[in-house]
Every structure is written in structure tokens, then in C-alpha cells.
Design a protein around this nucleic acid. Structure first.
Lengths: 121, 121
DNA sequence: TATTGACATAAACTATACTCTAAGTAGTAT
DNA sequence: ATACTACTTAGAGTATAGTTTATGTCAATA
């Protein structure tokens, strides 16, 4: 699978895919004799995971740590699990924060709708 | 109220407060004869709002647009309401994305817990 | 053969949101 | 009077995550 096809499949850009490879999140991707990338099934699974995690704002640095542990093999399973559990907690916290903001936003919108605004921003 | 007190009250830094003022999100803050900032009630309300929205990731540029509209007076009420409603939708979308990621994270953690991982990242 | 288009690389650039530094002043403590 | 601390400013620097640019190669088409 070419970089273009992969980029299209995951709604990423070619640049982002090469960037992810450069920082070691994926790959190194297999290349043909002309030096053109040929993404394998395994690569696609990684990219899907990375994309999902990134879309929730999990930093590249953390994901890098995770894939590095993965590549070290079975002995790192506990450490990987711990990492995921930590990110889970952080993510829950962020979701709660955003939900609170959403609630305030809804309240404010209600005030606008009912014309009850006075001297508040 | 001094910048230090305000920063402490909202868990921001002095630098961030001055930065928000520089980009026009708040202020201009009243200053005493020595040029020291003295935050007023109205300023605090704005800062609380800004802090809340920022904590949910709403960009400064959008917030700036909102406070600018606010400062233009009542004639901008509809526009402000529309802006808030748009941000509400974006925020809901982001929360959903993050919730999906959280679900996947939980699923993955389950796999770790039950030792059912095989060749997946 | 000449050109075109997609790919490649390294490195510079951008966007967003701060954060820090340098240099200076005002008010207080010794 | 001197030192110390907290504040001030303008402007430079940092962090994160890409994105763009310059330059080059290769395969296929005109």
C-alpha cells in the first residue's frame, strides 16, 4: 500500500505519515527498489491505533514510549499496561473537564436564548 | 487584587495573565500610579470564563472574537450566541472522539488484564 | 527522448500558547 | 542610603505537532 493510499484511508497527510515514521511512532516502513514506501498490514494496524490515540490528544511522546515498549517484547507487558492505565485516567479527567465546560456553555446559551444576559461576558 | 493573587486564585501564572491581556482577551487592566495592575471584579469574571473555556481547548482566537463582540455591546448578541453554539457543537464532537478513544483504551487494558494480547500493538 | 507526476530526503518554517529573559522602577526593610 | 522584592515592559525563546520547501530520483506517458 502506498503512502497516498494509507494517508487517504486514515485521513492523514503523506507528510504526517512520514513525520510519524521519522519520530519512530511507526516503521521503518518497507521500501521497494526505487525507495518508495510499501505499507504492510502490521503498519496499518499501528497507524490506526496511533491515529485514534492522537485524535484524543495523547501526546506523541507517550505513544512513542508505548511502541518502544511493545517492540521490546513480552517482558514489557506490565509496563505497557501501566502506561495505558495512566493515560486512561488522564483522558477521563480531560473528558470531565470538557464536559463541565460544555455544561457552562449550554447554560450560557440558555441565557442568550431567554434574553437573561446582563453584565456578564 | 494584584496579579499574583489573581494568578493564584485561578491557578494561572502571572505571565499567562499578562499574555491574555496583551492579546486582548482581558483588560486593559486598571493600574495604580506605580503602574501595578489592580484587577477588578469584572476582570475576575472574565478571567474565570476564559480559563474555563481554555481548559476545554477552545482557542484564544475564538475567545478573542467573543470578547470583542461583547465589548461592541447589545447589537452583537445574536452573533455571540451563534459563536457559542458553534463552539458547543465542536466541543461535543471532541468529547465524543475522546470518549471513543477512552473506550478503545479500556478494551485494550482489558486485553492486557486477561492476557489476551497477541500480535497487536 | 523529453516531460510529467508521484515519490523521496533534509531541513527550514509555521501555528498555538505560552514562558522566560533582560533591564528597569517602586516601595519596603535594615 | 542600600538592599531586597515584587512588579513593569518588550522581545526572545520553548514546546508540540505538524507543514512546507528545495532538491532530486524514478517510472510512465507524449
Amino acid at each position: 500500500m502506498t503512502i497516498k493510499e494509507v494517508a487517504s484511508k486514515f485521513s492523514l497527510t503523506n507528510d504526517t505519515l512520514r513525520y510519524y515514521e521519522k519520530v519512530g511512532l511507526i516503521g521503518p516502513i518497507k521500501k521497494n527498489k526505487s525507495g518508495i514506501r510499501d505499507y504492510q498490514e502490521e503498519d496499518l494496524r499501528r497507524i490506526e491505533f496511533i491515529k485514534c490515540m492522537r485524535s484524543a490528544g495523547i501526546p506523541i511522546e507517550i505513544l512513542k514510549k508505548y511502541v518502544d515498549l511493545y517492540d521490546l517484547g513480552d517482558s514489557t507487558k506490565n509496563e505497557r499496561q501501566k502506561l495505558l492505565e495512566e493515560e486512561k485516567v488522564k483522558l477521563e479527567t480531560r473528558i470531565k473537564t470538557m464536559q463541565d465546560t460544555l455544561d457552562k456553555l449550554n447554560y450560557k446559551i440558555e441565557l442568550y436564548k431567554t434574553n437573561k444576559l446582563d453584565k456578564y461576558l
